[in-house]
Computed example of a mutant assay.
Amino acid sequence: MSEPTSKKKPRPARTERVAMPSGPNPRWLAPTMIALFLVALVYLVVAYLFNMQWPLPIGNWNLVVGFTFAIVGFGLATRWK
């Protein structure tokens, strides 16, 4: 009887993880993040109250503008330590 001749595939080389530079948050990060969240909230509330005709007369695209402010705020929140 012959032994099985199965060959194992070589494992790919592991990649090194690059550490984020650790340090304090920039001073502008938290105030900007909070301001973007508040602008998004106020923008969306005003747009709903005025049937999407104010602050800009662009209809339902006001939702896109308001949520864009919120998404940018969340993007900054991911950098906060």
Rank of each mutant, 00 (worst) to 15 (best):
L36A: 10
W54I: 15
G59H: 13
W80D: 14
P10W: 00
K81I: 04
I34A: 10
E3W: 03
A30I: 14
N25V: 06
A19R: 14
R27I: 09
F50V: 12
F69I: 04
A35C: 08
N62M: 04
W28N: 09
F74W: 12
Y48V: 13
P55N: 03
S22K: 14
R17A: 14
G23C: 00
V39I: 15
L38Y: 03
T68C: 06
M52L: 11
G66W: 05
T15Y: 05
P24C: 06
E3G: 05
F67Q: 09
T68I: 03
V18P: 03
L38P: 01
N25M: 07
K81P: 02
L36Q: 03
P26I: 07
I34T: 10
T68M: 09
E16I: 15
K7H: 05
T32E: 07
E3N: 02
G23D: 02
S2L: 08
A77G: 02
L44G: 00
W80E: 13
T78W: 02
L41C: 10
G59A: 11
E16F: 11
G23S: 02
P55S: 09
P4K: 12
P26M: 07
W54Y: 15
N51M: 13
I71N: 08
L76H: 07
W28L: 09
P31W: 01
L63P: 05
N60K: 13
T5S: 11
W28M: 11
V18A: 14
M33W: 02
R14Y: 01
L41D: 03
G73F: 00
A30S: 14
S2N: 08
S22T: 14
L29S: 04
G73H: 05
L76D: 03
G59Y: 10
I58P: 06
V46N: 04
A35L: 14
V42H: 01
A47C: 10
K7I: 11
K9D: 08
I71G: 11
A30H: 14
P26E: 05
Y43N: 01
A30Q: 12
E16Q: 14
A13S: 11
W28K: 02
V42S: 08
L49I: 11
A47Y: 04
A30F: 12
G75W: 01
F74C: 09
P55I: 09
A70V: 01
V65E: 06
I34N: 06
G66P: 02
P26F: 02
A13G: 06
S2Q: 01
V45I: 15
P12Y: 04
A47T: 14
W54T: 11
Y48A: 13
G66R: 00
R17P: 04
A77H: 06
P57F: 09
